[in-house]
């Protein structure tokens, strides 16, 4: 460190860049490389669930998650609160 270095305000923008890239690339890889059946799978799941519970259109989320060497299908369903349940 030089004796005048304290005058400079250092922002580490490279690490911000790296973090942003990690996130966006992971997202794009799963969207681009993911199987085409995901949207249809989501729609059909929604139909089945709706037979039993009255859920919103966006209550079912289907994602392909990469974990090491294998892919994992991550399905999450958010149920309505009891008051509004049919």
């Amino acid at each position: 460190m030089g004796m005048f270095d304290f005058l400079k305000v250092k922002k580490n923008t490279a690490s911000i860049a790296k973090d942003r890239l990690r996130i966006i690339i992971a997202q794009e890889r799963s969207a681009f490389g993911g199987p085409d059946y995901l949207p249809l799978l989501r729609r059909e799941l929604l139909e089945v669930i709706r037979k039993y519970v009255n859920v919103d259109v966006d209550a079912v989320k289907v994602d392909l998650v990469k974990e090491g060497d294998h892919d994992m299908l991550d399905i999450s369903v958010s149920l309505p609160d009891r008051a509004s349940a049919a």
């Binding site: 250092k10 922002k11 580490n12 923008t13 490279a14 690490s15 860049a17 790296k18 890239l21």
Partner: peptide, 10 residues
């Protein structure tokens, strides 16, 4: 080195 550019490793 100044943290302004992605490194090779990054």
């Amino acid at each position: 080195e100044g943290g302004e550019m992605l490194s090779i490793n990054d």
